[in-house]
Design a protein around this nucleic acid. Structure first.
Lengths: 334, 334
DNA sequence: GTGAAAGCGCTAACAG
DNA sequence: CTGTTAGCGCTTTCAC
């Protein structure tokens, strides 16, 4: 591989001049620039970004760390983020944190994170202890539905309001036995499932309907197949169920399948609403009514916060943002 | 940030000794190792991977470059690859190549690629001219359904055999008017759609059924919504269609929706088979029959080839592999 | 507008 | 088992 020194020799200039041309600095005369560019082309020169980064301290790269690459939701997040980061003149790389046995922490090795100018971290399954290990040495914005230490910037979905919106929609449609599929007891700050369960409860209160605790359906884990089996069993045991709020769209797809297995029609017998607004939802069964969590908004804000932290200006107080949600009405709840 | 020099000073040893401890080299006495580890903990030392890489020439990182992060297929690929790479003692980062206006080439900036020990490149939409710009300076394995220059290692799906298998399955079930949804004329080496169309033709020949060229349904582009509209129109115009081979599962999901829109039942009126074996397929409608392209096999082989290229041993001739496919039979074709 | 010197943090190669 | 020397490829700083 040719180095900047080879280019300098060939062009008859100093390494510094080549460096200036490579980095598009203005203080180079047109003639010199031409000769340097010619030499670069001649040698097929490529900058060594590693050396550049070691010396200059910046890599031009931002990382997005997600738990799983094969969950549709994180894929959408990654695609949006990649475009947004490019528009800001940097590049995005995505890493999967829960890879293999080593688990979340391995990918979070601070050493690796330090290779980037900044990082957007999706903190599902990460304890505060782990998150706290991130020193203030690196600009970081947190994503995710759990409470995080106050000193970090944090963007989350409108879990409570979204779940409430979805459940109110079902109650307003006349449903009186709205099951929450994938619900979980606990504080709304514990995570996605607890927060959405809180919204489900709130909706009942706002509409003056009693909450039936037997309608909280826990799932062994969040998975389409698991949901399918669990839901089919549930509706066979309790034929009065007339609606389901599913904590995610993937769960809702499992619920639709389970309801079909049990011979229930959607929306005639049971209405269904999901959460995430996956693209696919529009084309599944009668069309999946869902909550749009505002992913574009989330990424836009996360990157805005990250840019602020990466800028040389004095660091401001951490922000904690909640994205605005929207109901997307389709056939499964009509 | 503390450096190796700070640790060395605190532990009362040379930088080299600290380096040996950090890199788990055996030739350090237990006592010294203890003191160094203590000093590292005390200072909360983290290696600078950039400097390490500049000096040692290796980053311990492999890149996977995919066109879109939000296509379920590439998400699954990424997840499998991340696990496989970790098991080999390295890390994986995923980049999206078709980000924003700049397009494929930007992410392929050779300079960026050189930061990695090796790269797995999904070459959808990449011309041979672009691929050829990759010098032999970096271990690279190509993925994708188009023909590539012979000097590159290349792993691809069994497009022709898979499409043939799917179509034969439909013909054997008694279908006589098997439409290919998302088909395209051209050489089988042109890309995914042409290759699968070739398999569709082969199946007709092997079963002695005439190919009706009007049953080749082109799509404006590969998208669930586009497919839905196009398929609904097609079956209204030609009521004799009794089966569909869809070039991908995402297309198949659109076809299922379009068939429902047009009042056709699956599988009673029209049988449907997809291609990709997305997890979701099992739970959509009657269950989507599909071709499993052997993603695990593809990634396993790609990484094996990459490891071989990354090893110091002499480079062997490039390999061009085709993954074995399998029919996954579900309700949509019964 | 251009160049020389110095060094980012680390490790290969060689001594001992 | 431990240390010294040199330098990876680049850019910062300062000089001209």
């Amino acid at each position: 591989m040719p180095t900047i020194r080879d280019v300098a020799r060939l062009a008859g200039v100093s390494m510094m001049t080549v460096s200036r041309v490579v980095n598009q600095r203005p203080q180079v005369s047109p003639g010199t620039r031409e000769r340097v560019l010619a030499a670069m082309a001649e040698l097929d020169y490529q900058v060594d970004l590693t050396a550049q980064q070691l010396r200059s301290g910046s890599s031009g790269t931002v990382a997005l760390i997600v738990p799983r690459l094969d969950h549709a939701y994180f894929g959408q997040l990654g695609a949006i983020a990649a475009d947004a980061v490019i528009d800001r003149g940097r590049h995005l790389v995505v890493e999967q944190s829960s890879a293999s046995q080593e688990g979340e922490l391995a990918a979070l090795s601070l050493a690796r994170l330090h290779q980037y100018d900044g990082a957007i971290l999706s903190v599902v399954g990460l304890g505060n202890a782990e998150v706290n290990r991130i020193r203030d040495s690196l600009p970081v914005v947190l994503l995710g539905e759990k409470e995080v230490p106050a000193r970090f910037d944090h963007v989350m979905m409108g879990n409570v309001s979204g779940a409430r919106l979805a459940t109110e929609h079902l109650l307003d449609r006349g449903a009186r036995h709205v099951m929450i599929v994938g619900g979980r007891h606990g504080e709304p700050t514990d995570g996605m499932q607890s927060a959405r369960t809180a919204g489900w409860v709130e909706a009942h209160q706002s509409r003056g309907v009693e909450v039936d605790p037997r309608l909280l359906l826990e799932l062994e884990f969040i998975d389409t197949g698991v949901t399918r089996r669990t839901v089919a069993r549930a509706v066979e045991q309790d034929p009065t169920i007339d609606a389901m709020f599913c904590v995610t769209d993937e769960v809702a797809i499992g619920a639709l399948a389970g309801l079909a297995d049990a011979g229930r029609r959607v929306p005639e017998d049971v209405r269904v609403v999901g959460f995430d607004n996956l693209r696919l939802g529009a084309h599944i069964g009668p069309g999946l009514t869902t909550i749009d969590p505002g992913n574009e908004w989330i990424i836009t804000e996360a990157i805005r916060l990250l840019e602020a932290r990466m800028s040389p200006s004095p660091p401001t107080a951490a922000e904690h943002l909640i994205a605005p949600v929207q109901l997307v009405e389709r056939g499964s709840s009509r």
